[in-house]
């Protein structure tokens, strides 16, 4: 019972904050809702007994990536009003309907092919423990792991080159 309440509360929070991110006019408020959304997703991971990923989600996403967004928003937003240009050619309603249709389709597929409940429930699952994740990461997936680190290095160099005022 408790896990049902947890799931629906967190799901509601995630979706509400997600909607606020894409609909709020003020970009800084939007970034704030994004942080709240990521924290709710981290709590969802924690409720699925994936504590390591939950901690990484907070540390890297909420504490790192979104701070970058906030910096950029503050840099590019200082001189302009928070509202963006209203464009009459923009068809928000049509976009919403399209998203709704695809969502209904995806949900239909997911429900029609419903999976059996997992053999072990979330509370006793060991798949998310730090030890298991670390073992998988450093044995079977060592090469993808190293590739990811090279990717981060390339991205770092790229970001510095792009953000420099003169080359």
């Amino acid at each position: 019972m408790a896990d049902v309440i947890t799931f629906y509360t967190l799901a509601a929070l995630i979706l509400i904050f997600g909607l606020l991110v894409v609909t709020t006019r003020n970009t800084v408020h939007s970034v704030l809702f994004l942080v709240a959304d990521f924290l709710a997703v981290a709590m969802l991971y924690a409720s699925m007994n994936s504590l390591f990923v939950a901690a990484i989600q907070v540390l890297v996403y909420a504490g790192g990536i979104v701070v970058l967004y906030l910096f950029v928003v503050m840099l590019v937003n200082l001189k302009r009003p928070p509202e963006e240009v209203r464009d009459p050619a923009r068809q928000t309603g049509l976009g919403g309907v399209l998203a709704g249709v695809v969502l209904a389709e995806l949900a239909l597929i997911a429900v029609a092919n419903a999976l059996d409940p997992p053999a072990t429930d979330a509370a006793s699952s060991t798949a998310g423990l730090t030890e298991q994740v670390g073992l998988a990461l450093y044995t079977d997936y060592l090469i993808p792991f190293e590739v990811a680190s090279v990717l981060l290095l390339v991205a770092m160099v790229g970001a510095i080159v792009l953000a420099r005022r003169e080359l």
Binding site: V35, A54, A55, I56, G63, G64
Partner: peptide, 25 residues
């Protein structure tokens, strides 16, 4: 006693920076 206790400390502490940035902005 979380089994990711130390990571929890670091990740929660990294949220505190928002208070300062937002207060200034």
């Amino acid at each position: 006693d979380l089994n990711v206790g130390l990571l929890y400390v670091v990740s929660v502490a990294s949220i505190g920076v928002y208070g300062i940035i937002l207060a200034g902005w």
